[in-house]
Amino acid sequence: MTFAIEGWFAIDGDDVRLLGTRCTTCGTVCFPPRRGFCPNPACEGTELVEHRLPRRGRVWSYTNACYPPPAPYVAAEPYEPVTLAAVALDEVGIVVLGQVSGLTVDELAVGMELELTSGPLADGPLVWMWGRPS
């Protein structure tokens, strides 16, 4: 398996997880994973440990790309609109954007539950994607 980006998500069998970080001082969670200093301006924390984000969340909003996005995106040919969803993960207070696998905008709604999965970009490497809960 080739990942489109290293260290941002992990695949264990059917279980796909986003890899965030958590500040051991104040508990602030970050995605993408962060090194160095905690982003909370009131926190002096420098120990940011890996934190697997919850796999399910609710759609904050969604859209699609009716035209092929420009490079460095590699668009499939023939082009099918890419669907995007921003999903709220309430337990960690974060909204995460991702492509949507297997659902079009007509099948999505704000508030709907989605689950993390993964899928290939047109040129092969895997990226995290939001999909219908299994």
């Binding site: 602030t28 982003p39 960690v92 974060i94 909204v95 954007l97």
Partner: peptide, 16 residues
């Protein structure tokens, strides 16, 4: 806590 360009995610409101 608004998803802003060019970010992948918002800040977390879990701790603050």
């Amino acid at each position: 806590t608004t998803l802003d360009l060019p970010n992948f995610a918002t800040d977390s409101s879990a701790a603050v």
